[in-house]
Design a protein around this nucleic acid. Structure first.
Lengths: 152, 152
DNA sequence: ATTGCTGCAAAACGTTTGCACCTAT
DNA sequence: ATAGGTGCAAACGTTTTGCAGCAAT
């Protein structure tokens, strides 16, 4: 187990929800926390497979869902119709700017953004659950950008 | 043609981009503008099919993309891995609150939200292209809500 | 005449499901 | 012993693509 504290949180979450404690689940937890940045469920499955893990695709998908439910991971959607996850363990909350020229995902925090979901939901008579705020933008020096990719 | 002004905008956009002017494309435009609310490409295809249109699924998908490019429609993503569209013709810009209990999509406008993408992008050294701001919330009187659906 | 657009069906893609077997409780 | 989790492959829903024929330029 790579991360004792996260492992403990997950174990407690599983126990409280009458879910079973299995080695596969902790294998997924470890791989997910180790992953640097945002990843799709399949990305993680492939990575684990390459590292000779024998955990199945179905288990990876289901476990990531559990990890998002207990907030060790966050679920993200960047408008390309696939679910991405990122570690939420000991991380401050943030939003994303997605560069449409080079594909970079830049994280930022802005105090004004954080207040708004609560404020607006209250106004409309709802209880906030979560929100997503994505900015789609372009880097000015397109050709110089190290991530620059020619559009197809 | 149901909407002369939108038709003209689309015609001009097609011409300027060396795209051909075809009846199918205007059929999709009409159906899309007539659609009340947010719809998936397939929703529109099925609707048109039921109304005895003979436009193909492929054409619907491709035309909606064109209509989003010329900003007669807006592309939306509400975190369920499917692209939705809505009319942007003569509509003020707005954001969305998605109710996780009943599925309603509530539109709202907030002046503070509108300034932020520009402001934040500039700070990070990018040019804004667009943004998406979705609030996921719950209606308080779940059982009473007319849209209430038991979770599966 | 050319080239882009169309309809159709097939493929692609990320994701979920059904099932027989296995394992944590 | 039991119910819940697992791996596998097949199914799913949305979207894209390849291609032969068609129609706008």
């Amino acid at each position: 187990m790579k991360n004792k504290q996260a492992t403990e949180i997950f174990r407690k979450y599983l126990k409280d929800g009458m879910n079973r404690i299995t080695p596969e689940r902790f294998e997924v937890l470890d791989a997910a926390l180790e992953y640097n940045g945002h990843f799709g469920a399949d990305d993680l499955f492939i990575l684990m497979k390459n590292q000779k893990s024998r955990v199945s695709r179905a288990t990876v998908y289901k476990t990531l869902e559990l990890l998002a439910q207990c907030e060790l991971l966050l679920k993200r959607n960047f408008g390309d119709n696939m679910t991405r996850y990122e570690s939420n363990f000991k991380k401050q909350s943030h939003d994303h700017l997605i560069c449409m020229d080079c594909g970079r995902i830049v994280e930022f925090t802005n105090p004004k953004v954080k207040e708004l979901p609560e404020e607006i939901s209250k106004e409309l008579g709802f209880d906030v659950e979560s929100y997503s705020f994505n900015i789609f933008a372009r880097c000015q020096n397109t050709k110089k950008c190290k991530y620059f990719k020619e559009k197809k």
